[in-house]
Write a protein that binds this DNA or RNA. Structure first.
Lengths: 128, 128
DNA sequence: CATGGCTATATAGTGTCTCTAAGTAGTGAG
DNA sequence: CTCACTACTTAGAGACACTATATAGCCATG
């Protein structure tokens, strides 16, 4: 497994509106690290495999830097496997707590928005 | 019913991260108009009742103006019910088509993100 | 050995959009 | 008259994604 971006092509979904990714990329990145430390380039491939399209380096790296500043992740350089060095990111306890919190909140928000969108939703007063 | 913002207080939820609202407010506004024309101030009250918090006028009105420019809505001034005039917004066919499209896409995106977040999701290779 | 491609991270410039804040205005109550 | 509520508008500041580019290690091809 020298190539973290092999396995399967994204299959479907290509690219979502950038505002949607802007809203979610933060906790998506925290979730990507929940299974153990990883590095930017591998995370981009992981997002691609899971149907989020190709996240740009110019988006992800500044985000991870902000998260390091905020104490959600810590970093460590490791040698690359036939290639340049890799900057590994690992969740802190704070990062894990944030992920847990955002998971719940996002679930609630997604539900609220999907219920509001529902074409069946009564829009005037509810008949009793 | 002279006050479009009576009924129930928001109950719970108060305010969501602004990026989450940024991602959704566009199609939320289209959905708010799906039941018939409405105006900004009433829409703000409607969002509040449905758990989205208090959307600011400085956010909603420029959005609606962009949608008018884009041909998703058309506008018409009507007299207010004891108060200033109201600028009513109505969906065009284009707006209705966009709403239908975004409803499907948002549903897919929300599902993709929630599946990715799932703590139970296998993160290394799936056992066969 | 040089050219290009893949891996990997970083930064600058531009544009969009939310937020805060304030302004304009009509109506009605004290 | 002044305040509160209704209702829309605009200005200024800040956050952040996008495009494009820079840097750099490693490897294959010719």
């Amino acid at each position: 497994m020298t190539d973290p971006r092999s396995e399967q092509p994204a299959a479907a979904a290509g690219d979502w509106p950038s505002d949607w990714l802007r809203a979610t990329l933060g906790f998506l990145a925290l979730r990507a690290l929940a299974a153990g430390p990883s590095y930017g380039y591998a995370m981009i491939g992981d997002f691609e495999q899971h149907g989020f399209g190709t996240i740009k380096g110019g988006t992800l790296y500044p985000l991870l830097t902000r998260y390091e500043t905020a104490g959600l992740v810590v970093t460590e350089w490791r040698a690359g496997d036939g290639g340049p060095g890799r900057k590994y990111f690992a969740l802190t306890d704070h990062g894990r707590a944030e992920l847990a919190r955002l998971r719940v909140e996002w679930h609630r928000f997604a539900g609220t928005s999907i219920r509001y969108l529902d074409p069946e939703r009564p829009t005037k007063e509810t008949p009793e």
